[in-house]
C-alpha cells in the first residue's frame, strides 16, 4: 500500500476532470473493494479522488414513474430498503440483500457494487500470475482452484466470474447506466457495461478514461414487479454465489408474455440468458420448458471437473425460480 494523495471531489465534473488523463488516479466511493485491494497490493493508485460525499445519493422516479433513477452513491442497504425498490423491482432488493453483510451494505455504493472486481483467489494474491491484475502474466485459475470459475464466455486468458449480485438483477431488468465523462454524459445499456475477458481481462467494463457512473436507471414493468433473485451459495449468508438467477416474468394466462433471466457466477459479466428467454416467450411456463430453455443457453458452456456442477445447478435453480414466480403470478 503505497503513499497516495487524497482529494475530496468538489463535483462530479471536477472528479472526472481530475481522474481523466491521470492513469494513477482512481475514484474512491464506499471503499469496500478498493481499500481491500490497496492492502493486498492489487492496485496502487497515486491519487484517490473521493466521490463518496458527492450528492449522488437519491432514489427518484423518472418519466412519471416509468422507472427509478438510482444515484451512484446510494448505499446498498438504503437501496434495498427503499419502498419503491421493494415493491416495483424486488429482484433488485433481493439481490442486494443477498450480498455481503449488513455492515458492508451500509458502506458499499450502487456504482461501486457494479464496478467491484473479481474475487478470484489468484487475482487477489499478488504472488501468483493473473492476467487481470498483471496482463501477460498468465491465468492461474485455468488449471488451479476453479470452483467459482466461469462456464460461459471465458477465454484462455481469464476464467473468472463477476461477483456482483446487484449487477445480475440490473442485467435482467434492462437497466441503463448514466455515465459522466470529459465529453459529457452518455447512457450505457446495462448489457454493454461489463465485458467478456477476451484477450484482455485487465479491463472489466466499457467505461472510458475518467468516466464516472452517476446514476443507474431501472425501468419498471409488469415483469420487474414480478421479479426475484435466487442465490445459491455454500454458507447460508455472507458468501459469494456459486450460481445465482435473477428472473422476471409476465404471464398471459399460462403463457409467457415477457421473461427475463440473468445469471451470476457463470461468466466474466452478468449473463443475460437471451436464448433461454427466447425459447420461453409464447410458451407455457412449465418446469420442463424452463429446463430445456436453460439447456439451449448452456449449449456452449465449457466446464471442468470443478465447475461441472454449475450446469445442473443453473438448470434447477432457474426452473425453481421461474416456476415459483409463475405460481405467485397465478395465485
Amino acid at each position: 500500500m503505497r503513499a497516495m494523495r487524497y482529494l475530496p471531489a468538489e463535483s462530479p465534473v471536477w472528479a472526472v476532470e481530475t481522474v481523466a488523463g491521470s492513469p494513477g488516479a482512481q475514484f474512491l466511493a464506499g471503499g469496500t473493494n478498493l481499500v481491500d485491494h490497496l492492502k493486498l497490493g492489487v492496485t496502487a493508485p497515486e491519487l484517490l479522488v473521493d466521490i463518496s460525499r458527492l450528492p449522488l445519493d437519491q432514489v427518484e422516479q423518472y418519466d412519471d414513474g416509468a422507472g427509478l433513477r438510482i444515484g451512484a452513491n446510494v448505499r446498498n442497504s438504503d437501496l434495498a430498503a427503499h419502498p419503491l425498490v421493494r415493491s416495483r423491482m424486488p429482484a433488485v432488493a433481493r439481490a442486494l440483500l443477498s450480498g455481503a453483510s449488513g455492515q458492508i451494505r451500509n458502506q458499499a455504493t450502487t456504482a461501486g457494487n457494479l464496478l467491484q472486481r473479481t474475487r478470484c483467489v489468484y487475482f487477489q494474491d499478488v504472488t501468483t500470475p493473473c492476467n487481470k491484475r498483471e496482463p501477460g502474466s498468465g491465468c492461474s485459475a485455468l488449471e488451479g482452484y476453479g470452483r467459482y470459475n466461469a462456464v460461459l464466455g471465458a477465454s484462455a486468458a481469464c476464467v473468472t466470474t463477476h461477483p456482483s449480485d446487484l449487477a445480475v438483477a440490473l442485467a435482467a431488468l434492462d437497466a441503463t447506466v448514466v455515465v459522466l465523462g470529459t465529453e459529457g454524459e452518455r447512457r450505457v445499456p446495462f448489457a454493454d457495461l461489463h465485458r467478456l475477458p477476451g484477450d484482455d481481462p485487465s479491463v472489466d467494463t466499457t467505461l472510458g478514461d475518467g468516466e464516472l457512473i452517476t446514476s443507474v436507471e431501472v425501468p419498471v414493468s409488469r415483469a420487474s414487479e414480478r421479479s426475484t433473485y435466487r442465490k445459491v451459495r455454500d454458507r447460508a449468508s455472507f458468501a459469494f454465489a456459486l450460481v445465482s438467477v435473477a428472473a422476471a416474468v409476465e404471464l398471459d394466462g399460462p403463457v409467457v408474455r415477457d421473461v427475463r433471466i440473468a445469471w451470476g457466477g457463470v461468466a466474466h459479466r452478468p449473463w443475460r440468458a437471451r436464448l433461454a428467454e427466447a425459447a420461453l416467450v409464447g410458451r407455457e411456463l412449465t418446469e420442463d420448458a424452463v429446463r430445456s430453455a436453460v439447456d439451449e443457453e448452456l449449449a456452449d458452456a465449457e466446464t471442468t471437473a470443478q465447475t461441472a456442477y454449475k450446469v445442473p445447478m443453473l438448470r434447477n435453480t432457474t426452473a425453481l425460480t421461474l416456476t415459483r414466480l409463475a405460481e405467485e403470478e397465478t395465485r
Binding site: 481491500d36 449488513g102 451500509n106 458502506q107
Partner: peptide, 9 residues
Amino acid sequence: RRHLTCLTL
C-alpha cells in the same frame, strides 16, 4: 450506522 472500520480510510 454499523460500519466496518477496516475497509474505511
